[in-house]
Structure formats: structure tokens, C-alpha cells
């Protein structure tokens, strides 16, 4: 199985070409590059390094969010267009699950994406005997206070927070001094791991309707619903003219 995997859901960019479980090419960039500029050249370089053409690929694996809205859109747009235009299989993997893959297998893993104002996107994962990540608490957008409340049921020294920013680290240390904290710079999402997770994930059935997992409404929609408006199922908000 030849897999092309990539992730641009946060500041780092990661591209990997994995053939039968072996990482043949791995391109990582942590410095602030523009994902929209780098992604396709990096894919091109990765394939070249692996000695493959894009036609040789069997499966496209993409981190589908949550994360930076623009970031996940860039990767998801490239992934769905590539899969559609070349008739390849497509797998979308949670960006948080991908971060959890950096954790210690013995720990209860809490991958995070800082969503500002002491909020985060977070999920809770464990690693099973086969080394696969299982969801304990589904990815969601939460205040850190609510997340801590949920996590109180677990042994604090078993908790491992992954991808913490300095502010999140400060909050976590106050609440769970015994917990393990992996900072952002030490938990880069690796597309090689993304390819591995993708191998055991069901491919997307309907590529046209594959969209990022934002886990949050836009502010405009949030306000609109808050005013008591209801989505009209009979109206299609986008129509062909």
C-alpha cells in the first residue's frame, strides 16, 4: 500500500510518503511557512524523494481538523481534489488523534489545540494492545476549566497533555501538577504516523461531501442561531445557477 499523507492543521507542515509501512519520504517544516505556498511543492518533493509519481499512490491520508480553519481547509481541499481527480482512496484522520500518536502508550492522552482565551480543542485517547489509538472522549471545543472538570475522574499522574502552548501549560500545571505535559515544539504532528493511522481507518465514501472537522460554528452562524433562527432544511444555502 502506497500512502501519501499530509497535515497542515496547525503551524507545522508535514508530508510523508509511506510504502508498505515504510516511510520513504518525510518533509517537516516547523518554521512559519505559508501552507498554501508550500504544500504542493512539498508533496511533489516527497514523491520525488520516494521515487514515485502521484499516480502510483493508492491512498491519500489527511489530517482533517480540528485546528486552524484556514490550515485544515488547505490540506482537505488538496486531499479531496487529489483523491477525486485521480480516483484514489481518501482517509481523513482527526488532527488531535494524530497528535495523540506522539504520546506515551501507557498514558491517558489528551491532545490539545489552543483555541485562545483559555479554550482548546481537545480529545482523550488511549492506546490499545495493538498500538491503536481509541477514543475515550470525542474531540470537542471546550474551556480549559470544563476540560479539567471532566478529567478529574482519572488518575492525574496517568494524564499526558500533548501540544500545550505556554498558557495552556500554566493552566494544566496549576490543576494537575502530576500530569505529563508535552509542549507544542516537542509534539509535531508527523505525517508518517498519519499514514499509519490511515491504514486502519475506513476510507471516505463520499469525497464531494468530505469537509474539515471544524468543531465550531462560524461566529456569524452562532449569532444567527442565538437569535432564534433555525436552519431551514428545505433551503439549500448553496445552489447551482
Amino acid at each position: 500500500m502506497k500512502i501519501l499523507a499530509f497535515d497542515t492543521s496547525n503551524k507545522p507542515l508535514s508530508v510523508a510518503v509511506v510504502v508498505d509501512g515504510k516511510v520513504l519520504a518525510h518533509i517537516e517544516s516547523t518554521e512559519k511557512k505559508t501552507h498554501s505556498v508550500s504544500l504542493l511543492p512539498d508533496i511533489q518533493d516527497g514523491l520525488q524523494e520516494a521515487g514515485l509519481t502521484v499516480n502510483d499512490i493508492d491512498l491519500i491520508a489527511v489530517a482533517k481538523g480540528p485546528g486552524s480553519y484556514t490550515g485544515v481547509r488547505i490540506a482537505v481541499t488538496v486531499a479531496k481534489t487529489l483523491a477525486d481527480t485521480l480516483n484514489k482512496k481518501l482517509v481523513g484522520v482527526s488532527s488531535l488523534k494524530l497528535l495523540a500518536a506522539n504520546g506515551d502508550k501507557k498514558h491517558l492522552l489528551v491532545p490539545l489545540m489552543d483555541a485562545r482565551n483559555d479554550n482548546a480543542f481537545a480529545g482523550v485517547y488511549v492506546t490499545n494492545r495493538d498500538g491503536r489509538l481509541l477514543t475515550v472522549i470525542a474531540d470537542h471545543h471546550t474551556s480549559m476549566a470544563n476540560l479539567f472538570e471532566t478529567l478529574k475522574q482519572y488518575e492525574p499522574n496517568e494524564l499526558e497533555f500533548i501540544n500545550a502552548t505556554p498558557r495552556l501549560q500554566e493552566l494544566i500545571q496549576k490543576q494537575f501538577p502530576e500530569a505529563t505535559i508535552i509542549m507544542s515544539e516537542n509534539s509535531l504532528p508527523a505525517a508518517g504516523k498519519l499514514a499509519k493511522i490511515a491504514e486502519t481507518t475506513k476510507p471516505v465514501k463520499d469525497i464531494d461531501n468530505f469537509i474539515p472537522t471544524y468543531l465550531r460554528l462560524t461566529q456569524a452562524e452562532h449569532d444567527w442561531y442565538a437569535k432564534g433562527n433555525k436552519e431551514d432544511k428545505n433551503v439549500s444555502y448553496v445552489e447551482e445557477i
Partner: peptide, 20 residues
């Protein structure tokens, strides 16, 4: 619904429509 184009909503719709 919002009385004008909301950029984030627009971007999301584009991703929904593009391959179709």
C-alpha cells in the same frame, strides 16, 4: 442570513462545492 458575505462561511462553502 447575515445581510452580506461572511468570509469564513464563504470559505467553508467553497470546500463543500469544489470537487462537485
Amino acid at each position: 442570513r447575515f445581510g452580506g458575505v461572511v468570509p469564513e462561511v464563504a470559505s467553508r462553502h467553497h470546500v463543500e462545492e469544489v470537487t462537485r
